[in-house]
Design a protein around this nucleic acid. Structure first.
Length: 417
RNA sequence: GUGGGAUUAGCUCAGUUGGUUAGAGUGCCAGAUUGUGGCUCUGGAAGUCGUGGGUUCAAUUCCCAUAUCCCACCCCA
């Protein structure tokens, strides 16, 4: 029996993991600058949380969840996204009494049972932020500026921000009626899928990728043009705030979002290097969600960023991330001096240095080869001479230069190097 | 759930119009005289040719099924 990683999952190995660590580090750093604290939550939740939170009508809930009964008969689900869990935790832990707004960030894996393709996996990684308790557009813009800064810190050359407003339940209902009326005469020209959507959720017709549907909907009324006064003010305010911060964006009336909880502001950062899954990051406001999950009516906004897609984009733009650190010193052993080498090696590690030594009883030549391949900066051979004199030659593998150092001063020497 | 392409050594790939011991490059291990790497040379280990059936005297090669990978539809991060 030969085992392999389950479909849609993959192993992340060194040195590739260095890029992941770097991204996580930078993300956490940027989040903290904006006052976000890290939240860590269970990987699975009660199934009903996602049904209610994400929305029963969404593809995610209808066909993509990893749902299973536990031995106590509970129905549990591997999280398909991060927001529902955070909101559950917000309500459960009474965060409404925390200083407002509550700002949280996370780095998680999420799970969706989908067919795999470029930029899409069954287990995938997300960075996310949630800001709960602020209703005005300033927090929307702040969150977007956080993302801009993050992308910049990662070295991404250009990131395209698209924003839209999908209104609130009130104006959305009015708009849906309007849209249905407008679409009705064009119905025969739409694809099969959109025929369906016309009944279930006409909003989704707007972001259909079929060219014939786009041809029809290009002229269709947009939600953003039919907002109620409050939603319009919010959308105007958002644009003002973005302008104040000097952030460039385009209004894309086709952005609809596939999760039910979004209201008003929705936005995406897109790329052309991630296959047809161009969205690196998607987010929006969810002013009704906290209530849906059992809390008091509270506004909120958040985003999720696909880490696989981010790293693909970095790669496509030829951006290097810092390589994994290599050992400073390889302590090579000549002759019968293993014990001294082990002792010295541990002493240097205790002093905070990354040091390796031979564990396989290899020839000196083989040890040198190994040190060269592993990217180690220095080698010191520990043999009869060194054991007797208490000093040795520290060889710089890059320059091939050797300097004489006393073994009891090695730490000092290497820490300075 | 639906299509298309792929699957041969750790990795990247040749190959067999069906025939006996399946190849290369790279990587790995070792050696090229005594305690010093990257270049070069030599040698070695490593494959049930994705898995299961079928056709055949004979299958890695042809047929069917299945799994996985890649890409796309759908949808999303």
């Amino acid at each position: 029996m030969k085992f392999s990683a389950p479909k849609g999952t993959r192993d992340l190995l060194p040195p590739e993991t260095a890029a992941w660590q770097h991204a996580e580090h930078v993300f956490g750093d940027v989040c903290r600058r904006f006052g976000y604290g890290e939240i860590r939550l269970p990987t699975f939740e009660q199934t009903e949380l996602f049904q209610r939170g994400v929305g029963d009508t969404t593809d995610i809930v209808q066909k993509e969840m990893y749902t299973f009964p536990d031995k106590g008969g509970r129905s549990l689900t591997l999280r398909p996204e991060g927001t529902a869990g955070v909101v559950r935790s917000y309500v459960e832990n009474g965060m409404a009494s925390w200083p407002s707004p509550v700002r949280l960030y996370y780095a998680i894996t999420a799970f969706r049972y989908e067919n795999v393709q470029k930029g899409r996996y069954r287990e995938f990684h997300q960075f996310g932020c949630e800001a709960i308790g602020a209703a005005g557009p300033a927090i929307d813009a702040e969150l977007i500026s956080l993302l801009q800064l993050f992308f910049a810190q990662m070295g991404l050359a250009e990131t395209k921000l698209r924003i839209n407003s999908i209104g609130c339940p009130v104006c959305r209902e009015a708009y849906q009626a309007l849209l249905r009326d407008w679409l009705k005469p064009h119905l025969p020209q739409l694809c099969d899928n959109c025929q369906d959507r016309f009944v279930r959720n006409p909003l989704r017709i707007i972001d259909c990728k079929e060219t014939r549907c786009q041809a029809v909907t290009a002229q269709a009324p947009a939600q953003a043009d039919h907002l109620c006064a409050d939603c319009q003010a919010h959308f105007d305010g958002l644009q003002h705030q973005l302008n104040v911060l000097g952030l460039s964006y385009v209004i894309d009336r086709r952005i609809v979002r596939g999760l039910d909880y979004y209201t008003r502001t929705v936005f995406e950062f897109v790329s052309e290097h991630v296959g047809t899954q161009g969205t690196i990051c998607g987010g929006g406001r969810y002013d009704g969600l906290i209530e849906t999950v059992g809390g008091a009516p509270t506004p909120g906004i958040g985003f999720a960023l696909g880490v696989e897609r981010l790293l693909m984009e970095l790669d496509a733009q030829g951006i290097q991330t810092p390589p994994a650190p290599t050992p400073v010193l390889f302590l090579a052993i000549a002759g019968d001096h293993e014990d001294e080498a082990r002792r010295l090696c541990f002493r240097l590690r205790q002093a905070g240095l990354a040091v390796e030594t031979d564990l396989l009883g290899r020839s000196l030549k083989a040890q040198m080869k190994y040190a060269g391949k592993s990217g180690t900066r220095y080698v010191l051979v520990l043999g009869d001479d060194e054991a007797a004199s208490g000093s040795g030659r520290l060889r710089n593998l890059e320059t091939r230069a050797e300097t004489e150092v006393r073994l009891d001063q090695l730490e000092q020497h290497l820490l300075e190097a």
